[in-house]
Nucleic acid binder design. Structure first.
Lengths: 341, 341
DNA sequence: CACAATTGCGCAATCGATTGCATGAATAAT
DNA sequence: ATTATTCATGCAATCGATTGCGCAATTGTG
């Protein structure tokens, strides 16, 4: 804030020898104020460079005109796309966006969520941290009936609006695709199974195997945190098996890339000898060589929808909750395409 | 906000038959309140689930505990890295971060900046939009002495804290590098010259040419907006010249990639026949093939520094302004490395 | 034991905008 | 001309937390 304080409606009122109420009403275009007075007020406000103090207004109105968004990491393509979508819709609706990242740490997430609450955000959009917690901090929002929207990583035990991509279908389709390309032994690198997202992807994988009469071999599935290093370790392990896979469905593009590079360095040809698919359609997956087949998740759209859900819920509490499932798109690229290449 | 309103200090006071002042002081660990009373208050506050209303507190204290950040596009690697850095430092210091994106539109930027001001952010961190404007909306912050920090894209005519990368040296080094690799005719794809960043990069380019006794040929320089399409158009144009270049210093990695793909499709070998360097070290530049030589900009660090600058300025107004110049790093990759490959 | 210093707490104003109710003036209706 | 409406505006309380000042009770000093 600043020393020489900003002009207030009282300053305007004093100057024009009228009351602050009138000024307030005039600035809101309240028809109860005559056109003449209103014009005088607006004109003076302009020339004084008056800008309403939103904090005061918010206090009185018991709303913050702010929606909070919490992601694991801002600097991740998918999440920043969501944030961008949220910002767009929120801004148009006259809301500001307060942002924070949990770094996938339960403690930071709790702290952030409390802070968002203390700031009285009108709604909270969140993709929860990987670290499993008890979610008490989020239940508070439900208890107090503050709009809450989960996106991507949701919490099953909390009943509220959710928006996810169709991870099951995504997992199903990439697996089906690998099978159609003639890969016979398909491994899977799965993320933390406490997160619905990764669980669903795996279930889609299992379902596709089953539909094609392939028996599910648990030894071909590795659960890790899907970092670049995890990818290398996992593929190393998988290739050391007595009967190694000839394709992997990686839980994200990062591990798809790191395993691909590892395999390539080992002289394994992709896609001829080995098929790889990722998930998320990170920008790099399109431009690496070979380019990586993956599942596109509409991040920006998801952000827009999440914002719409929140705004809706703010305007219309008590409405029944819904879970939006956004469709995913299979993007076939070089890393798995050995039939038509 | 929510219907059944939150407990306030007055509720606590009433319950304990003491005054709200005492509650307020106790919660701030004011030593004027006896340990016994303080403990009773804190314990009751806990059990009531009391959370201070930050808006009320902010109003009274005339500060928002919020810093605003405005970027052209949230969903861009460099910017989201900066945001991430800002968030980290700000959060640790007890500040919340309000975010918005200008989409490189002057009008939206103006609107955002006004909104940030109306929300009484304690400081504003901004990288301005490409579209040239008159910057009046930003001068207001200076006039009112509200901490303002420019990063990356700065405004020369406004005197305040700034933080940039050493674009000049970056431009100089990539050019020098291309020369050392034996490229003879080096073109440059430059961004909008009203932005200091791009101007400095070009100046570095010119300086390197000059230092090496190469005359500066303006026809080899294309100014555009550095989109993917711009890159293709520019390289198309350059290659149609009577004496086309044999290397290009592209103003960013996006254009470096699109021109590289264009040239490769034309059967031109990179780096053997043609050298390409980009700028910014986008994540993809490392993993594409050939990988792209570029200049690394420390986005996350820049965000941290920007936040530190703002916090410093908030705590200590009247301090003289500084311009932090962060070092850049030349990353030599395949696209320009024909000597040691 | 009388007076001073310290301790613990409450009163009431304040931050800036909003709004239900009241008031006085202007206009309309009878 | 007199009462009923409508119109334009003001008063004062409110949102929730903070804080300067003051007062009373307790403790300390000589």
């Amino acid at each position: 804030m600043h020393k020489k304080s900003e002009p207030t409606i009282h300053d305007i009122a004093r100057e024009l020898k009228i009351s602050a109420s009138t000024v307030s009403r005039a600035l809101q275009n309240n028809p109860r104020i005559s056109l003449k007075t209103r014009e005088r007020i607006i004109s003076l406000a302009d020339s004084m460079g008056y800008r309403p103090n939103i904090m005061a207004s918010n206090l009185r109105n018991k709303r913050s005109n702010t929606i909070g968004i919490v992601v694991p990491l801002i600097n991740r393509y998918f999440f920043s796309a969501v944030i961008s979508g949220v910002e767009e819709v929120a801004f148009k609706a006259g809301y500001t966006v307060m942002i924070s990242q949990s770094n996938d740490l339960a403690n930071k997430e709790i702290s952030i969520v409390h802070s968002m609450f203390a700031n009285r955000v009108d709604g909270l959009i969140i993709s929860i941290a990987m670290q499993p917690t008890n979610y008490e901090h989020l239940k508070i929002f439900r208890k107090k009936n503050i709009p809450l929207v989960f996106f991507d990583r949701t919490v099953a035990e909390i009943d509220t609006n959710k928006i996810v991509v169709d991870d099951f279908m995504g997992g199903f389709r990439v697996t089906q695709h690998l099978i159609e390309q003639g890969y016979k032994r398909i491994g899977h690198m799965a993320g933390p199974q406490n997160l619905q997202t990764y669980l669903h992807r795996k279930n889609g994988y299992i379902e596709a195997l089953s539909k094609n009469g392939i028996s599910y071999d648990e030894s071909l599935v590795v659960n890790n945190s899907l970092t670049s290093e995890d990818g290398v370790n996992a593929v190393q392990y998988l290739m050391s098996l007595p009967k190694p896979p000839d394709a992997i469905f990686c839980g994200n593009d990062t591990t798809a890339l790191s395993s691909m590079i590892y395999l390539r360095d080992k002289g394994i040809r992709i896609p001829e000898d080995f098929g790889i698919v990722g998930f998320s359609n990170e920008p790099f997956s399109k431009v690496v060589s070979p380019s990586i087949s993956t599942i596109a998740q509409p991040g920006f759209l998801m952000g827009q929808k999440a914002a719409e859900l929140i705004l809706n819920q703010i305007a219309n509490k008590g409405k029944p909750f819904q879970t939006l499932v956004l469709p995913t798109e299979l993007i076939i690229r070089e890393s798995s395409n050995r039939k038509n290449s």
